[in-house]
């Protein structure tokens, strides 16, 4: 029997980073419809940093969270509607309650890879409401496999039904992924997943490594539409998984059609591994920072490569976009004084 992989598709969430969170309700509806036709199991929708993240810090979204979710909800029947949630941005009362009412099926509650305990109440709440809930550890390259296992076990104890580790900076090589996923599979009683970024051109290879090490949940977006260099390209991933004997339940032709539709209707530019994305991956900096770094380096006249490496040196985490301005000012000041 073929081994099954559960696919979660954040084209309409991570992809929002690529267009500075400007996806419209019409674009969301259009892609959701195509994703439903392709039988993609989970369609994740929202601001790039998830529920409640529209802000001057990260970027304001063109339409509100609930409007985005409703637009997708109307088009999804067999496919489940998913959201990303980060405590510290979203709260239960302001955001999660409303998302439950709008009809979200799957909540992926995320935290920086060492901060799992901030997700306790949010995971618990979603379980109480009878919805599906996963724990997500972001920027997972920053810590050892042992720490990841420890943090995952906390989320499991709060009620998470699976744990996904994110390579938010696109910093992993396949051997890094194999080692971490194997450790989590050994430590946990719930499914393990992987979310890749393509800064070093490794996203598909890393996702395959994850599956081979026992991961049963994989994330991918069509054309790799997502932050920075983009995500694991979903249509490539499905082709490769099929060739390797995994089943995903996705209609391959319809998926290719969905990718065409998305390329035509929601992408300004198809993500590519630009010079700056390689630097970002090497520096281990959150992919979502790329647009901000681009802007700040122009505004303050500093080399974006220096900016990325300095941010990496300071070990910034997702959500610390304000530091980009500070570091850019700092670098600009040094340049002047030299």
């Amino acid at each position: 029997m073929k081994k099954k992989i559960l696919i979660s598709d954040p084209t309409l969430r991570d992809g929002n980073h690529a267009v500075k969170h400007q996806l419209t309700a019409e674009q969301i509806a259009r892609y959701a419809e195509a994703a439903e036709a392709a039988q993609i199991p989970i369609v994740e929708v929202g601001h790039g940093n998830g529920l409640g993240a529209s802000s001057l810090q990260v970027g304001e979204s063109a339409v509100g969270d609930m409007e985005m979710l409703k637009a997708a909800r109307r088009k999804l029947v067999r496919s489940k509607l998913g959201v990303h949630v980060m405590p510290g941005f979203a709260t239960i009362r302001k955001d999660i309650e409303k998302a439950v009412e709008v009809g979200v099926d799957v909540f992926r509650v995320g935290a920086h890879c060492t901060e799992a305990d901030v997700t306790r109440r949010h995971i618990g709440y979603v379980r109480e409401r009878g919805k599906e809930v996963y724990g997500v550890l972001m920027m997972s390259h920053m810590v050892s496999k042992e720490t990841l296992a420890e943090e995952s076990l906390k989320m499991e104890s709060y009620g998470a039904e699976g744990i996904i580790i994110m390579d938010s900076a696109g910093a992993y090589l396949p051997s890094d992924v194999t080692e971490r996923i194997a450790e989590l599979v050994k430590a946990l009683n719930i499914p393990v997943g992987f979310h890749g970024h393509n800064n070093l051109g490794m996203a598909v290879a890393n996702s395959v490594a994850a599956a081979e090490a026992g991961a049963t949940i994989l994330d991918g977006t069509v054309r790799g539409f997502g932050a920075g260099a983009g995500n694991t390209q979903l249509e490539v991933l499905i082709a490769v998984l099929d060739k390797m004997g995994y089943s995903t339940g996705i209609d391959f032709y319809k998926l290719l059609d969905a990718a065409e539709i998305a390329e035509r209707e929601i992408m300004k530019v198809i993500p590519a591994i630009q010079s700056i994305s390689i630097v970002s991956g090497l520096a281990g900096v959150f992919s979502g920072f790329s647009k901000h770094v681009e802007r700040a380096s122009k505004e303050y006249g500093v080399d974006p490569r220096d900016l990325f490496f300095e941010l990496g040196r300071r070990k910034v985490v997702a959500g610390q976009e304000d530091l980009i301005i500070e570091v850019a000012m700092d670098l600009a000041g040094k340049k002047v004084s030299r």
Binding site: S55, R314, K315, V316, D322, E326
Partner: peptide, 21 residues
């Protein structure tokens, strides 16, 4: 709007607050 970020970097970061308006 309020956002709280916890950063585990070692050595530990000083508390920093940014106001946008």
């Amino acid at each position: 709007k309020t956002i709280l970020i916890q950063n585990p970097a070692v050595p530990c970061i000083d508390m920093q607050t940014t106001l946008f308006a």
